[in-house]
Measured scan of single mutants.
Amino acid sequence: MATGGRRGAAAAPLLVAVAALLLGAAGHLYPGEVCPGMDIRNNLTRLHELENCSVIEGHLQILLMFKTRPEDFRDLSFPKLIMITDYLLLFRVYGLESLKDLFPNLTVIRGSRLFFNYALVIFEMVHLKELGLYNLMNITRGSVRIEKNNELCYLATIDWSRILDSVEDNYIVLNKDDNEECGDICPGTAKGKTNCPATVINGQFVERCWTHSHCQKVCPTICKSHGCTAEGLCCHSECLGNCSQPDDPTKCVACRNFYLDGRCVETCPPPYYHFQDWRCVNFSFCQDLHHKCKNSRRQGCHQYVIHNNKCIPECPSGYTMNSSNLLCTPCLGPCPKVCHLLEGEKTIDSVTSAQELRGCTVINGSLIINIRGGNNLAAELEANLGLIEEISGYLKIRRSYALVSLSFFRKLRLIRGETLEIGNYSFYALDNQNLRQLWDWSKHNLTITQGKLFFHYNPKLCLSEIHKMEEVSGTKGRQERNDIALKTNGDQASCENELLKFSYIRTSFDKI
């Protein structure tokens, strides 16, 4: 039985969820670079991206490699990797027998973001014989899940209580170790020597080791999670996991709180800001991140802002960003909400898709409305799209047979046209069989910064309504002859009103 693990408890099935942008060198404390989270699957090609990484700022997932063999891993080693800020997950990587050479110096898994409450997941690794993470000293947050690894031993010899604050939620089941077939031998045991430290858990006094050649490092209890030197002297209180010299914040392997210019500090002093819960960055760093993602459509890219001495992905609820200094300031009234469309555009074809934009005031991208039916549609669209004030790209209304009016965009005031449909149009209306009105132009103002209007096959939309939009939106004169079809717009509506004058002759039985 794995020490510190839980057996036999019912657990939810383990679901495996399925960018080499360097964020800056980590400095003297770390020998390499800070790398983003990685999802490495199918083959070993991307694994080489770990070569210079000291910190993975995010998670590391290595999974679904069915053609790899043990010899493929023999020359692979990433000794610079010290810390993973989120979680480490391995799933069905064939041929991998140990992690001792792959990650010989991995010391800390912070667990800032977890995989279903777990910071370390080893699942269905069919050839893994031992973990071998002999320098792993601290899992700051989260638990361990090690399950269905039929060859995995050296679990009962690990004292997880020396690595985690609590072992109650560890789930370590259905491994070879369960069948008591392992016969784990710690260093020196074969020669009758006791080389590794022994600890007591559940009444068992057991030597602690990761492999037959690597003991588990056990520091004096007084050192807590700070770690200790090879001689057993406690590291500085700002260290986490390990250090090369005692009581020196510049000799830590990793930091308990924050890293700044080669030393570990309790908090980031001005003019620095907390970033990702582990390091200090200056304003320029946060500003660069903001600008890199301002026009990016890459998933996970955030326009970072500053709030409460932190550089964070977005302002919290009730705050909006001051564009001059990136500071989050309290909103006066309802907060603006910028919604970034991942692929640059979004099609609204149902109430469900409209709900995804609920509360958005600025759309960074283009909207395509293609709704053919739905219950209580006008009210639903207004509830979900009615706060949109600005669209950076274009607005396209296409084959939306259920629409009679666009009044559900009740606050839309600006279409920038930074991206144009077919390279020309910022407003595009095609084949809307029941569209009769755009907006009530006596109450609604709309500016279209650039781009043209396109109207074709809107049989109940009168040309007068379209011409009014040209005047109000500032697009009059931009359109070419064929942009607004004269014969297919309003051709099934009563669009022309003329005053009919009647004269009559009164007659009676005795007068003409």
Rank of each mutant, 00 (worst) to 15 (best):
K224R: 05
I163Q: 03
C243E: 00
I158A: 10
H28R: 04
L102H: 00
L131K: 00
T189R: 08
I222N: 08
T85L: 07
C53L: 00
C311I: 05
S213W: 05
G318Q: 13
R145A: 13
V93R: 00
N175Y: 05
K129M: 10
W210F: 12
D177T: 13
D159T: 12
V200I: 10
N150G: 13
L152G: 02
I139Y: 01
N43S: 07
H290C: 15
N308S: 05
D247H: 15
F78Y: 11
C315H: 02
C35E: 00
E33K: 09
P249T: 11
F115A: 13
L99K: 01
V121F: 02
M83G: 02
L155S: 11
S324V: 15
S213E: 12
R41I: 09
L327W: 03
N138G: 10
H236F: 02
K67D: 08
C301Q: 05
C311A: 05
E207Q: 11
T140E: 06
Y272A: 01
N325L: 06
R298Y: 13
E147I: 15
K310M: 05
A156R: 11
H59G: 08
G142T: 00
N170P: 05
Y304G: 03
W278I: 04
V93T: 07
I122N: 00
I306N: 03
M137G: 11
E57D: 15
L289F: 08
C252D: 00
G32E: 09
V218D: 08
I139D: 01
F285P: 01
C186G: 11
D178G: 15
C315A: 06
D248E: 04
D184V: 14
D101T: 13
P197M: 10
E130T: 04
P79H: 06
E49T: 14
C239V: 01
G241F: 03
M137N: 11
E238P: 01
N257Q: 10
A230F: 10
I222T: 07
M83V: 05
K148W: 03
C223G: 02
T267I: 03
P316Q: 04
F103H: 00
F123Y: 07
G188F: 08
W278R: 01
C53G: 00
R141V: 07
T107W: 05
T199H: 14
R141W: 10
G58A: 00
M137I: 05
L155M: 11
E180A: 09
N138I: 13
R263I: 12
I306G: 08
C234G: 01
S284M: 12
S225M: 06
S213P: 12
M38W: 02
E97V: 12
C239R: 00
K100M: 09
N295G: 14
N105P: 00
G111S: 01
R46P: 06
G183C: 12
K176G: 07
T329F: 10
C255E: 00
Y304K: 03
K176P: 10
L106V: 02
P246C: 08
C186V: 03
Y171P: 08
T189L: 09
N117F: 09
C219K: 03
P316K: 03
N42R: 06
D159K: 06
K217N: 15
G241P: 01
G232W: 05
L44K: 07
R145K: 11
E124N: 12
N105E: 04
R145G: 03
K67Q: 02
L106F: 02
N135Q: 10
C328R: 02
V265D: 03
S77D: 03
E33L: 10
P79A: 06
S225E: 03
F258T: 02
G188L: 12
S112R: 10
R298S: 12
E124F: 04
S317T: 12
K191A: 06
S166F: 06
P249N: 13
N42F: 10
L29N: 12
R298H: 03
L174C: 13
E57F: 02
K191I: 13
K129W: 04
T320N: 09
D178I: 09
R297H: 11
L332W: 13
C315P: 04
C153I: 01
L106A: 00
K224W: 03
I62Q: 00
S225D: 05
G142C: 00
S54D: 02
P316S: 02
H226Y: 14
R298L: 10
N202I: 03
M125T: 04
L289S: 11
L326S: 05
L133I: 11
Y118I: 01
Y94I: 10
C196Y: 03
L90Y: 01
E238Y: 04
C196G: 12
R141P: 01
C243M: 00
R141D: 15
E168M: 07
F285I: 03
R145H: 13
D247K: 07
G192Q: 15
R162P: 11
G142V: 01
I158W: 04
S284K: 03
V121T: 07
Y171I: 14
S323K: 05
H290R: 03
H48V: 11
E238I: 01
R110D: 00
L133S: 05
C234Y: 15
K294Y: 15
G58E: 00
G183S: 12
L29H: 12
V218W: 08
L29F: 01
N52T: 13
G203Y: 09
F283R: 12
F275W: 10
Q276N: 11
D247R: 11
K310V: 05
F66P: 12
D169T: 13
P316N: 05
P104K: 01
L106G: 00
E49A: 07
N309I: 02
L120C: 05
H59Y: 08
R263E: 14
E97T: 07
Q287V: 05
P104W: 00
D247A: 08
I84E: 00
C264G: 00
C228P: 02
T194H: 14
M125C: 06
